[in-house]
Design a protein around this nucleic acid. Structure first.
Lengths: 332, 332
DNA sequence: TTGTAGGCGTTATCAT
DNA sequence: ATGATAACGCCTACAA
């Protein structure tokens, strides 16, 4: 019924708990035949060390926290969902466990105060800066995922470079009036994508026109709103959307205005969301390497847990242009 | 630097650790003025009990495991993502924590063996039956979410009833040749939805024609494949899809065959996935109450943790028809 | 009302 | 090579 303990194994094997502990952990000399006997008994009983007792004495939990902003996880959670599962898989490979928590404000999550984790993955760029600082100052190993700030280790996507590529693709196709839309610009990734768009225009000697930039609102209709707003004051031949849901939503707005995609307006998204393949026409977009991000972040965090005193590393992952049909062929 | 302990507070307050423990837990009589003093000091120091020590003596972790099949979480994880965040929020309200893990086979997850959780939420219907039984026999409180088997507590969606409604909606609109497609039928929910479809036909005196049922393959192109297969051997005027991604994918297949939606073929989905609003035309579908499911499952699990000896409860949640534009108006 | 002491299961430091 | 034994931080009889 109740789980076997070292003591139970010790009694069966006719040795002390100390010997059993050594035999199982491999951290001390034990006679080979008694070790075999102990291992066999432990196996029979289905023994596994009690993590509470273990972490009490070892001062580590073999647990990593995965923190994400509560709002953030509503809309693009297909995005963070993939990261989550990839992170968990990678942690498991290292015999670590994942504690999942959402944060709604700047308060220190109970996870931390109660010592439930050895380190933290802070996912997404909507976590309050003050919280990140607070965590960092606590001395807890921390890695930012899909976000970056000075002084804290991070693994993130090359948003600026990606948006540059996306915009350059449109320019290559002959577009000269290219717009940029986002659900919101109150988000680091989206601002970086706007910056990449701006840099691409500049690199090609094209003017940056603020009238060609529009913002909607958070949520699934954000892209629709942004695109509608934009169409009322300008008539671009192409649009770079800050992410795929925004692009998909904008496509509906474009059609609602009686325009065709890509003939009248070409659209490029960002993220290569599963959704991208379902839009009409399928969406050309920038692929973001979610599971790569997860694997690198886990590796970095476990390294920091083992060896805390290290200079912060910032790992930037490039994106890849995925050409589908929402941008059509070169304009003539 | 290191976290404050009861001892530290006791020293500052000039009392014993026992008194501090009592003052903070409220589980014993303590003089009101010393209690105030202790509370103040604890607050100042930012004290929180060490969970390892606490759960070692209390024999509980205040941790709940959220288990999901590794494959399952790839494709429809927008669905389980919402459940995950809702579950975490609800657990937090009860001062519980969430341990997230994916399972790839029937092996008992380390979470359990190491005593890291007080109970489990088993999410989705792809977890192996043998694993569920193993867990149940271990005496660990368990609640199935979006799944159900005899003998184990569960909270799930009324798939059969929902598919019945969806099909009845099409019949009401005048359709007589109604098809059913799924990515796969190797899934309890999808089989139940097929059953609801069948029952609706029967209830309206319509024959069940196996030629009108098609299965594709798991993954985002599953619906496309199923629909293409179907169109080669039959020509329905409407189709019930086992879920929204399948429906969205099928819509592309329908258009690829030069047919219009809803004029030539009406489509109804299932889940009310965020995606449903992005399809062209927007998808009529059955809404599934994910966060309701989460809240009920958490409540049930926490109750079982407190009071383990209870008969199993099976909580079924009805769905709601959301009418958008993929089914058009009544046929004449 | 408060303090002393024992124990939860594990690891680590001593002896032996 | 093995066995006592003392922590780890907390809770809870029991004693004062």
């Amino acid at each position: 019924m109740s789980r076997p303990t070292l003591k139970a194994i010790a009694k069966r094997a006719g040795v002390s708990v100390a010997t059993v502990s050594r035999a199982l952990s491999g951290r001390g000399r034990v006679d080979e035949t008694t070790r075999q006997r102990i291992l066999r008994i432990a196996e029979e009983l289905g023994y596994a060390p009690d993590m509470a007792a273990r972490s009490l004495v070892l001062r580590r939990t073999e647990n990593v926290g995965f923190l994400i902003h509560a709002l953030q996880s509503l809309s693009p959670h297909t995005f963070y969902g993939e990261i989550l599962t990839a992170v968990e898989r990678e942690l498991r490979r290292h015999r670590y466990h994942l504690q999942f928590a959402t944060v709604e404000d700047e308060a220190l999550p109970a996870l931390i105060k109660e010592n439930r984790v050895d380190g933290l993955l802070l996912v997404g760029c909507d976590l309050p800066a003050s919280l990140i600082q607070g965590l960092k100052e606590r001395g807890l190993p921390v890695v930012l995922v899909d976000n970056h700030v000075p002084g804290v280790d991070s693994v993130f996507t090359d948003n600026t470079g990606g948006a540059f590529q996306a915009t350059a693709h449109l320019i290559r196709l002959g577009h000269r009036r290219i717009a940029f839309i986002a659900e919101t610009l109150d988000n680091l990734s989206f601002r970086e994508r706007l910056e990449g768009y701006r840099q691409a225009l500049e690199a090609h000697g094209m003017p940056f026109d603020p009238a060609l930039v529009a913002e909607g609102e958070r949520g699934f209709e954000g892209g629709f709103l942004a695109m509608s707003t934009l169409l009322q004051r300008a008539r671009p031949t192409a649009v770079v959307a800050a992410n795929d849901p925004t692009a998909a939503s904008a496509m509906r707005a474009i059609r609602a205005h009686g325009l065709r995609i890509p003939e009248d307006i070409a659209v490029v998204g960002f993220d290569d969301d599963p959704l991208a393949v379902h839009t009409e026409p399928p969406l050309t977009t920038m692929r973001v390497f979610r599971s790569k991000m997860a694997v690198l972040a886990v590796a970095r965090l476990l390294d920091l847990i083992k060896n805390p005193e290290q200079p912060a590393l910032h790992i930037r992952i490039e994106t890849q242009l995925i050409i589908r049909q929402s941008c059509g062929s070169p304009l003539t």
